[in-house]
Design a binder for these strands. Sequence first.
DNA 1: TAGATTGTTAATCGATTAACAATC
DNA 2: TAGATTGTTAATCGATTAACAATC
Lengths: 211, 211
Amino acid sequence: MSARSGRVPEVVVRRLPVYLRVLEELNETESPIVSSQEIGRLTGISPGQVRKDLTNFGVFGKQGVGYRTALLRRELRRILGLDRLIPVGLIGAGHLGLAVARYDQERERRHPGGTCLMAIFDKDPQKIGTTVGDLVIQDVAKLEESLLALGIRILILAVPATEAQALVDRAIRLGVRAFLNFAPVSLKVPPGVVVHTTDVGLELEALAYYA
Amino acid sequence: MSARSGRVPEVVVRRLPVYLRVLEELNETESPIVSSQEIGRLTGISPGQVRKDLTNFGVFGKQGVGYRTALLRRELRRILGLDRLIPVGLIGAGHLGLAVARYDQERERRHPGGTCLMAIFDKDPQKIGTTVGDLVIQDVAKLEESLLALGIRILILAVPATEAQALVDRAIRLGVRAFLNFAPVSLKVPPGVVVHTTDVGLELEALAYYA
DNA sequence: TAGATTGTTAATCGATTAACAATC
DNA sequence: TAGATTGTTAATCGATTAACAATC
């Protein structure tokens, strides 16, 4: 989880998709306008926080009125870069990797646009060539050429802990700067590269404290 | 992600399993003693932070020397409650649920003790009765009696967003106070109940900002 | 206009870092 | 003892909250 050079705190960037989600769920006709209070109620984030977060990126509301739902939704998509196709790759077609792939394909079906899973890699010859949805699992040996050909900009890692670092290093060399890591290992990356790690083991052990 | 009444910040509790992991990976004979500097190097957390976090729970080191590896490991397990069996349940035997179950069974095989997945629930009659490792998938209709019988204290949710809140409410009524939620929805829980949500969709959208 | 809600500043809160006395 | 490292306090940093002027 490396900080990026930019000026907007990561904690703010992580809240933007939460705002976007409630805006996507709001009915356009019923709620053409939405207030920071309403967004706060739907997300559990304070209205002041919502307004402060948004002002990091510009002025989107009208005083005394609120935010135009459609406009704010569009702006958030633009800020996050989701107004364009963002090709995503996945390495590791084990149980977890396949689950994430299917989960994401379903998510894309419901909310098209933005991130799009475009390649799955594995090193197991038994898996290479088989399909997941409309994707064919590729040999990870061809990672470099495939990442470049598809313009992959986010890479999901669902591989054993021992293999994750080497794969990240290879992908960074090709210009990938954003990783979602499911391997139970903390990855070393240079400044400007962001890694979000989701580690079920660590989560359970932290929850044990409260259980 | 609700705050707990206790005095130790959640951000500290979340670092404890990270410390524990490096202590478990350290070779006892090679490193009978470990310094905060070494822990810091292995985790990417500053040595001062390591010491400060630990002093929330007591005095475990020796000035001028460091921490006895075995002792600190044992103390961290005790602090987190991992010195006793913590029964864990899982609802949802879809792709993601099954992947998490298998991932966790593998984790337990390698590091026995502490959290232990003891029940899997689903509502699909086709899945009920089938096995995952040595666990038989149970009917979620029997959630209440099974949670009580097994003494489940952490519940993992791998169900559709629409079903998560109702299931959390049922489990809270039975005394479950810790949840690991994979459903793409923010759950409302009373004070004293902790929910850690892992949402692949939100993660990807936040990463899009950096991609 | 009166009422409402934003954008923004100032105050508060909390976490991290720096630094060092204690002490092994 | 001399060197090293903890435990702890003070200083810094950053994020959240409160409050309100601007203005629709």
